[in-house]
């Protein structure tokens, strides 16, 4: 079965979706990502969907699920590169993906994750200093 490769970059996992997702591939991705977040201790998941010409409610649900699972495992999910036509269609469809963070492109998304990692690092130092 086809699986979508997951790359680890620093504290982030990078997934680039290149082709129309078949349902089984989407389900496999959800599972693989959950495992990888724990194994890699990732603080962020970056999903690049700039190649997707459509996102229907199934893919929308997959993105929301990934974000939900990631949040429970203490990682942020950032969806990047959504096309304007796809964004308009999703909103009309009634899917605004409230739990998912977004960014214009992979660079911005990565910056978002790094900022969060830096902030949590600061918080940890600060907490340590309290003693």
């Amino acid at each position: 079965m086809d699986r979508i490769p997951i790359l680890k970059i620093g504290a982030a996992l990078l997934v680039t979706i290149q082709v129309d997702l078949h349902d089984s591939v989407a389900m496999a991705l959800e599972e693989d990502l959950s495992n990888m977040i724990v194994k890699a201790g990732a603080k962020g998941v970056l999903i690049d969907i700039s190649a997707l010409e459509i996102v229907d409610s199934f893919i929308g649900r997959m993105l929301a699920n990934i974000a939900g699972v990631a949040r429970m495992l203490d990682a942020d999910t950032v969806v990047v590169g959504m096309r304007p036509a796809v964004a308009i269609t999703l909103v009309e469809l009634g899917l605004s993906l409230p739990g998912v963070k977004t960014a214009l492109n992979a660079e911005r998304g990565m910056a978002l994750i790094q900022r969060r990692v830096a902030e949590s690092g600061l918080e940890a130092d600060h907490a340590a200093g309290e003693f």
Binding site: V55, F58, R83, P84, A85, V86, I88, T89, L93
Partner: peptide, 17 residues
């Protein structure tokens, strides 16, 4: 238009499912 294409393809995808 591109937006209308995307809308009808998405609608078709929902119904096909």
């Amino acid at each position: 238009s591109l937006v209308d294409q995307t809308k009808i393809i998405t609608a078709a995808s929902e119904l096909a499912r």
